[in-house]
Design a protein around this nucleic acid. Structure first.
Lengths: 346, 346
DNA sequence: CTGAAAGCGCTTACAG
DNA sequence: CTGAAAGCGCTTACAG
């Protein structure tokens, strides 16, 4: 059942059917009406494959999501899909699961399907595939993570100020031995968050020894392993800062398995804020990204690129959200509500 | 750059190129080698659109996900994608966001793109679009939620036994006023979970009054509203059972906003278990579904359908995971670890 | 083993 | 305003 059937039933040529379906003006009202009636009667829907093959555009954007199990990325995906839909595009997702080969697999199939543009948050420092695609002219924008040197707009948030605020908060609480669970050094967010943390510590004359840098991969299991290693140290850190929410989950697992309590025995903070952090035991201090805005900005940049406008890179600040996972604080109006739930003992 | 360029460079016809690319046997080793070399040199990738148009198959499955922000569904999506990839298919997701119109929007665009089959967890009781598509022969299987009466295989879990276990647990703890936050009555999981709860209560001679049935939509905000209403009752329930994890999150928000504590002031349990439940305050008692197996089984059923085999509906049991959100229990080896974190007071 | 040709379902100059 | 025809990039009988 195709355009031919519609044409036959409406008594016109396929060209005319195509014209009314694509809102070309030059169609007589009578013909238009007959076509529309035939479309309705037949329940006709144009074959998007054929249309795309002909027009060389799919009105589809690819989004390589680093990890579907990561609430930060699903929030991002939701925002991306929403903005794209508003602009008349649909989104095809690929879950990289933080694995570069899987990321490349998905990019390849998206490219094969001739998506109009690609939103990627690289799982590695620069897969040749991504670089080649960008060079070959595939409209592309990086979200959250990016690859330096590629001529690709970047939409991300800058967490440096928030990390400084976090370190000030931790220092004010009396903590001096601070550790971080990093993401893969090959990713920008993996290395930048460590750099920001190190810089912020330096301002207080505190060093970040290698033993206090846990190597994670942004997934929960790696947070668990890194935390176990910290806890086994002769001089364990007083604070663990997880570079994303999933590694914080892993850290909680490890801390609990040891029978320790947050923040009494060890403080914990995380990059990325998620709804569950309000209800964890204790509520977790976190750095929140303007996730929805990032998603929207990324789609706008990509559609600008696709439609011949000049895309804008955008960097939005992240901000510190203090809760109770790093230690005692004076009770203020802002913290009273959460404090009520925090005091506890085994 | 297309198959013609490869053919030209290899000095063969496009037919031959196509043959080597599709692993047809009848190609001379010499020709094969030249074609492969040309493909390599040119970095040629077949246009999937053209191929699909011709072969009438896309090797793509659509998955309508009820809500990307729901960890249960993202876990399902991940499992689905994994199994599909193993079977040589890729997945295109559509996020229905629990909205029937949005669900239909995505189904329409997936159908337009000629996906080979559709996995759906209906957001409503039976969109005409879904029913028509099934009737028209679109290979389809329902996952988690389903539409009675449609001739479509169903892959889901049966929570009745687990709900009975939950009610026994609650009753044993002395609770008699039990409430539920339901999902939309039009969805199977929305109505079934209430029915199972009501039945289980009946076994103890306990009724489920209307005032103790909160009407939710499986999203957090509705859980919050329903819980607020429960708490405002002259005789509030002693237990709230949220029919999914997101409504449990909303319930926690409402309980905390009132300055109440779980389980001291009110007990809470949830359908669907997620990793965060181990670390909430207190750890949440939940009913766990075999999510990964459901995803795999759903994909297998769908590919069976597509490839002409006989698909199997499958129903897997859910199971109760007792933690500490419903009240005191005797300390057993199993609960000791979590108990250590539970005792608390404001 | 190989090529010329038809055709998948559309869109779009071109001509009228 | 409208239709005949070409063509998007593939695959696949058909013939040799």
């Amino acid at each position: 059942m195709g355009i031919k059937d519609v044409a036959a039933r409406a008594g016109v040529s396929v060209a005319t059917v195509s014209r009314v379906l694509n809102a070309h003006t030059s169609v007589s009202p009578a013909a238009r009406e007959r076509v529309l009636a035939a479309v309705e009667a037949l329940g006709y829907r144009p074959n998007a494959l054929a249309r795309s093959l002909r027009t060389d555009q799919t009105r589809t954007l690819g989004l390589i999501i680093s990890d579907v199990l990561n609430p930060y990325f699903t929030a991002l995906a939701r925002s991306v899909e929403e903005e794209a839909r508003a602009l008349g595009y649909s989104i095809v997702f690929g879950n990289a699961d933080e694995r570069p080969e899987l990321q490349d697999h998905h990019i390849r199939t998206l490219l094969d399907r001739r998506i109009d543009g690609l939103l990627v948050s690289p799982a590695d420092g620069g897969s040749p595939l991504v670089l080649d695609a960008a060079r070959a002219g595939t409209p592309m924008v990086f979200v959250d993570r990016w690859i330096p040197g590629a001529d690709v707009p970047v939409v991300r948030s800058d967490g440096r100020a928030a990390v400084r605020d976090l370190v000030a908060h931790l220092h004010g609480l009396g903590h001096r031995r601070l550790a971080i669970i990093a993401g893969p050094a090959a990713t920008t967010t993996g290395s930048e968050r460590v750099a920001a943390f190190r810089e912020a510590l330096a301002a207080y004359g505190i060093a970040l020894p290698d033993a206090y840098i846990g190597q994670g991969d942004f997934q929960a299991a790696s947070g668990r392993r890194a935390t176990e290693r910290f806890l086994a140290l002769p001089e364990p850190p007083e604070v663990v800062f997880a570079a994303d929410n999933l590694m914080a989950l892993g850290a909680l697992d490890a801390i609990r398995a040891r029978g320790l309590r947050v923040p009494h025995d060890i403080a914990l903070a995380a990059f990325d804020d998620i709804p569950w952090f309000v209800h964890t035991d204790p509520p977790l201090t976190a750095i929140a990204q303007p996730t929805e805005e990032l998603g929207r900005a990324a789609v706008r940049a990509l559609t600008d690129l696709i439609e011949g406008r000049t895309p804008e890179s955008v960097t939005l600040p992240a901000r510190l959200v203090v809760r109770n996972s790093c230690g005692e604080r004076t009770t203020t109006a802002a913290t009273r509500a959460t404090l009520a739930t925090r005091r506890s003992d085994a």
